[in-house]
Structure formats: C-alpha cells, structure tokens
Design a protein around this nucleic acid. Structure first.
Lengths: 194, 194
DNA sequence: CATCATGGTGTATATGATACACTACTAATT
DNA sequence: AATTAGTAGTGTATCATATACACCATGATG
C-alpha cells in the first residue's frame, strides 16, 4: 500500500478490483510472492506494475492471516506500506484517496489500512519516515504541512522549526525557493542520522 | 518465541533441533500453520505443544521471508513473541537461556531474536507489556527488577515508583508480602487502561 | 507604490525527567 | 534481649523539554 501527501491531505492508493471476489470494490494493491522472491521485492514489484511507482520507502507493516479473510481460501497477506512524494499520477485502475474519505474496500483491507495509518502517525516524530513524503529538498513549511496532513492536527510554526532544527534532522542547502507573493524560503535537505 | 524474566535476567526459550537441517542446533520453537488456523492460534499451539506454556501474552513481531533462510525451500516465518511469568519449567528439549548468553542458533533465528528484544525494550515503557512478566500481584520492587532485566540498565527506585504510580498503571491490593529480613511490601495489581 | 502572502524569529511558563540519602520495619542471628 | 542484615518507603532541587503566543521583513503582483 502506498501513501503520499498532497494538498494538505494524507492519501492512499487503491485499485478497483475487476475479478471476483469483491469485483468493483476498491482494494489495496497486492500480488502473490514469486518463488525465491524476497517479500520486500514482491511489495516493490506490485507497486511498480500497478502504479509505476519506484524507488520508494518500504516498510513491513504486519501479516494478516485470519482464515476467513479471503473467501477463496486461507491466504496470508504480508502487508507493506510505501511512501512516495507527491509527484505521481493516477495509472489505470489505481486512484489516490484522502485517508479520511476512503471508499468502501474489499477483504479486510480496512483493518490493514487502519493499522498502517496508526503506525505512520506513531513513528512520524521519532523516525525519518516523514521525509519520504517530500522531494530531495524542501522548505520547512512544506515539511510542516506534510506532518500536519499525516497527523491530522495543526502544529505551531515556531515550535515545529525549533524542534526540527535542534534535532539536526535537516541541513540548509543554501538554495532558496522563490515564487509566490512572499520572501523566498530556505530549502533544506534531510540529514540521515549517523 | 517466549520470554520470561528470572533472577534479574531476561530469558528466551529455545529448542534443540533433532532433524536436519541444523540438527543439534538451538532454534526458536515453530510449526507450520494448519489449514483454517488463525496465525496467533498457531503460535499459541506451538508453545503449548513444545513447552506446555498457556494463557500468555502473544504479539506478532514480523514476517521473515528471505528466500535462502531455510535450505529446504522458500519458507515464510510469521514470528510471534510470547511473554510468560517466571513460574515455568524446562520441558523436553526446551531450555531457557539469558538473552545475553544465547547459544549458537540455526536458520536466521539470531536476526529474529534481535528484532524481538529490540521491540520488547522499545515498547516496555509506553505499553503494558511489562506486566505480562509478573504474576497477578507483585511488589513495586519486583516490577522494577523485571524492567531492569529487560532493559539491561539499573533504574532509580524513587523515580521508578513515582513514575509508575503517577501513571496509575497499578493499584494497591491492600495485601502485603512478608518474608525476608525487611518490612513487608505492598502488593499491586496491574490496572489496564480504559 | 500599495497590497498580499508567507518567511522567519524569541521568551515566558508549565511540565516532565533526573539526581540523590535516610529512616523504619521485620527476620534472622548471637 | 540485643544486634545485624536487608529491603520498604519517602521528597526536593535541578535540569531539560514542550507549549503558548505575535510581529516585522521580504519579494511578487498589479
């Protein structure tokens, strides 16, 4: 499953399912693991095939294995979530939805999505996962807007900047963004720790 | 995989493997999922069959699926960890080892164990998982000793008690433990939140 | 040249985390 | 009966972190 932040909203990629079961429902992109294929490679392959997404942050979420979750039989889903930055387009039957306005989904995908959103929110402040939503360089305002979209709550500008800068999670590039009726803003780059 | 705390040490249950591959090596207890069996039920079943452990805390850790992790073929392991209190005995080929003195293990079980210990330590302070190491009622000193064993670091007595009590994670039972050359200590019971 | 929209900054207060030492009580020993 | 040993239980001062809050400067636009 893939997340992005666009226009102050956290969005999720869903696919309209063509075959039964749940034909016509929106579902998370998925596929069966190939023989000798690492699990993370399967996750990356699915997103490449179904939505042309590449080179993205991927993290294992959990494995869902209730016996009745798929009417065809007892199928395990090893769920992964991906984070991409917003420069992506809808492809084929894939569509991005804000997480607070999702359509009805098939299987147990609501549970999986809820678990993922919770994980995303929980890990945002103490990991570097938030930077995966942004391009290489970004302004602090853009970063703050992404955090706000993910958490669903407003953040204080001064406190946000103080906190990010004091943790040395970003470095100034020296480049400034211009455009718009306002002064240009410094662009920063993410500074991975150690 | 099962953890307990005994005598100021965090311990892990391993099984001596009889059949190839890795015959003679210590490994995590495991088994194949039965048809129509929920994953958590499989984890519970394994610990019941191999070590007569029951009624314990169980949490999904992660799924390990590197294609070469089992020489017999591409096998996924959905790893769970369990927490039991110390009133348990060694059974058959199962044996408890302190996590800082583990024997050589087979498969990729070192990785799985390291992930589990990290998770245990990470979640200890902000979840109720630590209480699963203790019997129904316990003294604050026992609780502190369990935390110290899990984290591997000493904790300050006054600060520890202040913190646990202020979070209202426990309630006094009114019963006191006596025994030993010291005043009797209040026994507490875990208070699940909400 | 006026307007608009965002960039960028500091301080005071409250809250939570840390460091630290002694007396009281019971059991066991002499 | 007296002594010893070992843990129970308690408070305060300091430091670090989190929160609340408002204005001026700058560049683009018309």
């Amino acid at each position: 499953m893939a997340f992005r932040v666009l226009e102050a909203a956290l969005e999720l990629l869903l696919i309209e399912r063509r075959e039964p079961p749940f034909a016509g429902n929106w579902t998370l992109p998925g596929a069966f693991v190939h023989e000798k294929e690492p699990l993370e490679a399967t996750a990356a392959r699915v997103l490449g095939e179904k939505a042309h997404l590449e080179g993205i942050y991927l993290e294992q979420l959990a494995t869902f294995g209730a016996p009745d979750r798929d009417p065809r039989g007892h199928v395990l889903s090893v769920a992964y979530f991906a984070i991409v930055n917003a420069a992506t387009v809808d492809e084929g039957s894939a569509h991005w939805f804000p997480v607070d306005a999702l359509p009805k989904t098939g299987f147990d995908h609501d549970d999986i999505i809820a678990t993922a959103v919770q994980r995303l929110r929980g890990k945002l402040t103490y990991t570097d996962l938030g930077f995966a939503f942004l391009p290489d360089t970004f302004t602090l305002t853009e970063l703050q807007q992404a955090w706000q979209a993910i958490l669903g709550t407003p953040l204080d500008k001064r406190n946000f900047r103080k906190s990010i800068l004091s943790q040395q999670r970003v470095v100034a590039t020296g480049q400034k963004s211009s455009g718009g009726a306002h002064p240009p803003a410094m662009r920063y780059r993410w500074q991975p720790k150690d």
